[in-house]
């Protein structure tokens, strides 16, 4: 079973994503801010990380940079969710080391499709 780390400060959205993924038998660890996300990443092994952009403590961008700063973590896939929809902002996110980007508001079904696609690639 695939293990996924989800970092999202909005409780409601967290619930939406967790419900969607858990129905498909993924194991989802939840983090409510950037700090928790980094902590959980250090403690566990994940197949995919889903990050919100605007989060307390560390923003999604900062979390990516921390993860990508270490060479051994270069394999883990990162999907960024953000309300920021401008192309320049998306470019910055991809440059920082995210593999995929999905704009808010997003369709949970499409998110699921995307995740399955990502994990099948591996």
């Amino acid at each position: 079973m695939k293990r996924i780390l989800l970092a999202e400060d909005e409780e409601v959205l967290r619930m939406l994503i967790v419900d969607t993924l858990e129905d498909e038998d993924f194991i989802v660890d939840e983090a409510a801010d950037g700090g928790e996300a980094v902590q959980l990443f250090k403690e566990n092994q994940y197949d995919l990380i889903i990050l919100d952009y605007m989060m307390p403590i560390y923003t999604g961008l900062e979390v990516i940079r921390q993860i990508r700063s270490s060479q051994e973590n270069s394999a883990v896939k990162i999907l960024m969710l953000s309300a920021k929809s401008q192309q320049s902002e998306q470019d910055m996110i991809i440059q920082a080391g995210a593999d995929y980007f999905m704009a808010k508001p997003f369709s949970p079904m499409k998110l699921l499709e995307k995740i399955e696609e990502i994990l099948d690639e591996r």
Binding site: E10, V12, L13, L16, A83, K84, P105
Partner: peptide, 20 residues
């Protein structure tokens, strides 16, 4: 930019749950 962000979050929930 803030309005855009602030509106998208609840919108995402409404749309997401409705879709589910």
């Amino acid at each position: 930019s803030t309005v855009s962000h602030e509106l998208r979050t609840p919108l995402a929930s409404v749309l997401g749950f409705t879709e589910l």
